[in-house]
Design a protein around this nucleic acid. Structure first.
Length: 287
DNA sequence: CTCCAGGTTCCGG
DNA sequence: CCGGAACATGGA
């Protein structure tokens, strides 16, 4: 096995990892394929990553950054063993082998999901790239320009119309309001990170445009809360079809209570597997 | 053209 | 607490 020039290798033989599924499953939106690998940013750092079987290649010196960002220390087999033993869950778990919940920086994760409301994954990615290119910091990897996600202070200084120009629609007001609260210190994300799940959820919901779904996405993808279980339209369809036999009159509250207990301590992982599996196999509204 | 997208908020039963 | 409606934009 040849080694790409300038890159060093991370041994994946002890743990399953699927880079493409991990970056393409809808938990993060700014990574793009580049040659045989992927190019994106981790906070303020550019990162190139390329997988060849049980090896992950990253630039020399980026090994620890990559291990941490991709959560290569998560024991996926142990997580999977805690999932409920039903047919839908088993199929999703098998389908998503090696898919990891990565560790995104809290602000860019939270902000991105504020802009995700009623948008398709492709649109969320487009909005993210526009915000980055216009207001983020430019970093370069091998002459390829990349852009970091704009800090809350940067977005807070913009006008709503400048954000609307990024095709944010009604989400512009929410992103601006949230950025102002974080920039002013009225919302302290470091403090949120220290709160128990339930309290962190309530705290995040103080932000405009943040309800239970967005807050749970932020907790799961940005605050390392593997139990957080976001319920979006896809997951709601799965829950109603598989676990409630298409019954009518199942309230949103009932779905939340069920998923919070049924899927266990790593319910967020289970959720992402069900989400990705459904999206890849059912297209839209399929039975 | 119509429908829907990783929702939140507000409003009337 | 619950169901509906409004909210912007673009792809299917």
């Amino acid at each position: 096995m040849t080694k790409p020039a300038g890159l060093s290798s991370i041994d994946l033989r002890s743990t399953p990892f699927d880079l493409s599924q991990t970056l393409g499953c809808g938990q993060v939106f700014h990574w793009r394929t580049h040659g045989a690998g992927w190019l994106g940013t981790v906070g303020d750092e550019p990162l190139y990553a390329e997988q060849r079987g049980a090896r992950l290649f990253v630039p020399a010196g980026c090994e620890l950054l990559a291990r941490r960002y991709f959560a290569l220390y998560h024991p996926l087999e142990e997580f999977g063993a805690t999932f409920p033993e039903d047919e839908a869950m088993r199929a999703a778990r098998d389908f998503c082998c090696g898919l990891r919940i990565i560790r995104q920086p809290p602000w860019e994760c939270l902000a991105t999901f504020i802009t995700s409301a009623l948008k398709q994954v492709a649109h969320i990615a487009q909005i993210s790239h526009t915000l980055r290119e216009r207001f983020g910091r430019r970093v370069v990897w091998n002459d390829v320009p990349l852009y970091t996600y704009p800090a809350p202070e940067r977005l807070a200084a913009l006008s709503e119309s400048e954000l609307r120009a990024c095709r944010l629609g009604f989400r512009a007001k929410n992103l601006l309001g949230a950025a102002k609260m974080v920039a002013s210190g009225e919302m302290d994300l470091m403090r949120v990170a220290a709160l128990p799940d339930a309290e962190a959820l309530v705290e995040l919901c103080r932000l405009p445009g943040v309800g239970p779904k967005v807050a749970n996405c932020a907790l799961l993808f940005g605050f390392e809360r593997p139990r957080a279980f976001p319920i979006d339209v896809w997951i709601e369809r799965v829950l109603r079809r598989i676990y409630f036999q298409r019954k009518r009159k199942v309230t949103a509250r009932r779905l939340r209570e069920f998923s919070a207990s049924y899927f266990g301590p790593f319910g967020g992982y289970a959720q992402q597997y069900l989400f990705h599996h459904a999206r890849m196999t059912q297209k839209r509204g399929g039975s």
